[in-house]
Amino acid sequence: MKYQVVIAGFGGQGVVFLVKVLAICAGNRDIAFLGTENHGMSQRGGAVSCDIKIGDFTNPVIDKNQADVIIGLDSNESLRNIAFLKTGGTMVVNAKADYPSLPFAVARVDANAKALQGAFPIQGLNVYMLGVALASVKDFPFSIEEVKNAIMQMNPKVAQQNIKILQMAMNDCK
């Protein structure tokens, strides 16, 4: 298998958490992976993106025109990383309805609005968007069960809450 995912957002949104979840999914199935983080000097509120390459790779960086999926936790950050999405790839994004039309498959959800309405606490935005990716990307390399197991392994204390959010996203995308 060869599958490349870019996760883009800003510091505080839990970008790295998602990479860890996907890494555990790969590890549980004994598939090799390489991941890396791209961020500058700022911490909370600064641009962050992570690359994860699942399968037979020898360096952790995703080049332009190579990613199968981008998961954008923020609308602008998703667009600033768009050069990495390959022709035929999927953009999964948290954005308002005015998100521009792109020459890719786009799965757009206004997750900020849902959180503001109280559907889930904002710390769960990352997991919600992973749920959107699971529901809308046909060739996503992991099943919902695998992702749930990985979330359990990450931190059993908050796993139930996260799994609820993941399920909510899957239902919302039906």
Partner: peptide, 24 residues
């Protein structure tokens, strides 16, 4: 060059998120 991204014209420039001190 297989690593060249397809040109996409969004019709606007995406605002950068320049490095900044954390909120608070």
């Amino acid at each position: 060059n297989i690593y060249e991204a397809p040109k996409i014209d969004l019709g606007f420039s995406v605002p950068a998120r320049p490095p900044a001190l954390c909120p608070g």
